[in-house]
Nucleic acid binder design. Structure first.
Length: 219
DNA sequence: AGCCAGGCTACCG
DNA sequence: CGGTAGCATGGC
């Protein structure tokens, strides 16, 4: 099976997932792709991308609920929160000391952009933003043509033999982007496909790859 | 009760 | 460069 076949099979099997779960747009299953978000929505994606590091999105939703109850989903409102209040709000997502620090650093960076789209290198230079978080912000926040690789992506693609066990982030990202660039000429459509493929991989992994052995996910 | 979750940094050899 | 400890809560 080719990699693009996997994408099409997942799409047929699970249906369009409709990510990112933006609160302002009704959360999951919004059935629209995210190309042109407002600055507020882009920030919400970035916030979620940081909070979801090594955690489930259900935990992130709790943190976002807490922030919303404090009327603190915007950069300035979060900045004006007492540090302990911020940490307490994001406690459900884990690593709250680090993540509070990451979020505050990102806000300073985000404000400095003044609406400009950041480069991947600029994002990677931010404290607490690694490759996955950077691609998450670019793909789902800014609608850029950057595929996001996560633990589930690695697990599924290596288990199905598309990449080796020890394949690194850059290698997996390059493979997917190479294949999709060949299959989908229109950059706009490709962004939708990257968003959808990532979401489908998560759905599939949650179903079949949550614990070893991963035999049932052969597809 | 213990393992895992949509990672990243710091530090080691 | 590759490997690993540390970070922390919540769900199953």
């Amino acid at each position: 099976m080719e990699l693009f076949e996997l994408y099409k099979k997942l799409l047929v099997h699970y249906g369009a997932q409709g990510w990112w779960p933006l609160r302002s747009r009704g959360g999951y299953h919004l059935h629209e792709y995210l190309h042109t978000l407002s600055q507020e929505e882009i920030f919400e994606v970035a916030l979620g991308s940081i909070l979801t590091q090594n955690t489930t999105f259900a935990s992130v939703e709790k943190s976002l609920d807490n922030l919303q109850n404090l009327s603190a989903l915007t950069p300035h409102a979060i900045q004006n929160l007492p540090l302990e209040t911020l940490k307490n709000a994001i406690r459900p997502s884990g690593y709250f000391n680090q993540k509070a620090d990451y979020i505050l650093h990102f806000i300073a960076f985000f404000e400095g952009l003044e609406g400009r789209i950041p480069t991947r290198e600029e994002l990677l230079a931010c404290r607490g933003i690694g490759e996955e978080t950077a691609d998450s912000i670019l793909l789902f926040g800014y609608g850029m043509s950057e595929f996001k690789v996560d633990a589930y992506t690695k697990r599924i693609l290596s288990h199905l033999g598309f990449v080796g066990e020890t394949a690194k982030y850059a290698e997996i990202k390059a493979l997917v982007e190479e294949v999709f660039e060949k299959k989908i000429a229109d950059a706009h459509k490709r962004v939708e496909a990257y968003q959808e493929f990532h979401a489908l991989l998560v759905a599939h992994a949650k179903r079949y790859y949550s614990k070893k052995p991963y035999g049932a996910g052969g597809f």
